[in-house]
Design a binder for these strands. Structure first.
Lengths: 197, 197
DNA sequence: CAGATGACAGATTTCAAACTTTGTCAGTCG
DNA sequence: CGACTGACAAAGTTTGAAATCTGTCATCTG
């Protein structure tokens, strides 16, 4: 008598934890709340995740993977690399900004992680930099860009656009000029990428 | 019987307030502490500044002006504009990073202001953007740069380097790679500035 | 015997009462 | 008469005792 719906999997715990985080926010959500939502004792949750921090990291990891997925450069191969780069940056900004509006509690969880420099975030930043590197390397192979080291350039582009996607800057996203500011930074960057050093 | 040393001027209040902020930090410093340091009642302080926020803003304004002063591009006119731009960015980063280390309580006051979007900060950002604009406009007139709108480019350079000087990013400055990362971003930006559109 | 439980110690958080701070203003002092 | 004082109301902060939470583990259950 252990039907599939009743087996306590990591997946089900993550679903419940995400729900509890969304409802109560990172400051109020407890492991007891998560267990309560699942109808089990909190000891059972500790059977699957060694600490509360590990559970929160796992929720964030899954959430960030889902976030980075639709950005994959393989999903947008039309037109010059410079324009794909702008679209990528605008989509990243739109996703983060939408999250800050629609899912403020989960966004707060993620922001907290970035200030704690947890490695979940380092991996996420690595994914984003790798996607930028892919666009830049493609631009190089098409003769549009002339950088010698695409991974370094990819990271530099991510750093240069921090204002538009780093959660620390969320308060500045209310400024209606923010989109135009991103375009100005992009304009300088793509011209810099195109130059033969 | 009101000798110069005993007249209660805004200047003396600001000195005392800065001192109290430095000792206790923005969270603990009170108007009563400032008055105590001056040997007057707190009512006298309110005779010169309408609110505690106005007093804190005035301290920050004076402090940020002193900070921006040594950056003035007129003090560094040697060599190509691209190199002066890098030196300016590195000096700005060094000043902010030094402040975060040497004067953590005043730095915390400033960081708090930036998150509250007070206009003291907007003015400071305006000063910095104007200094960048000056370097870029000079580069244009020497034929090194080719931007059509130096003020827009100056603001874009400031935005693109936020990671290296915005107080929100203070925690990331501990990374020893931070200096190299700034140079990579600068490299893309100056190449972008040099391109004839 | 794998998986779940719940009692437990120590750490952390909550809550309400006591205290402090802000900002005002009628009154003092030189 | 103008600069300063200090008593005061309202708002905000501290404090410490009570409640809750985290993480462990001996015990239970199917």
């Amino acid at each position: 008598m252990t039907p599939a719906a009743v087996v306590l999997t990591e997946e089900r715990i993550l679903d419940a934890a995400e729900d509890v985080l969304r409802r109560f926010g990172p400051a109020k959500a407890t492991v007891v709340d998560v267990a309560k939502a699942l109808g089990v004792s909190h000891g059972s949750v500790y059977r699957h995740f060694p600490t509360k921090v590990a559970l929160r990291d796992a929720v964030a990891r899954r959430w960030l993977d889902r976030l980075a997925d639709p950005l994959d450069p393989a999903r947008d191969t039309d037109g010059p690399a410079a324009e794909r780069l702008l679209r990528w940056l605008e989509r990243l900004a739109a996703i983060k900004q939408g999250m800050a509006l629609n899912d403020p509690e989960l966004f707060a969880t993620f922001s907290q992680l970035t200030t704690e420099a947890r490695d979940v975030v380092a991996v996420h930043v690595g994914h984003l930099a790798a996607q930028l590197t892919e666009i830049i390397a493609d631009g190089v192979s098409r003769g549009e860009f002339a950088v010698t080291d695409p991974p370094t350039a990819g990271l530099a582009v991510l750093h240069a656009t921090a204002r538009f996607h780093h959660p620390l800057h969320a308060a500045e996203w209310a400024d209606p000029a923010i989109g135009a500011q991103l375009q100005e930074v992009w304009r300088l960057l793509v011209q810099g990428l195109a130059v033969r050093p």
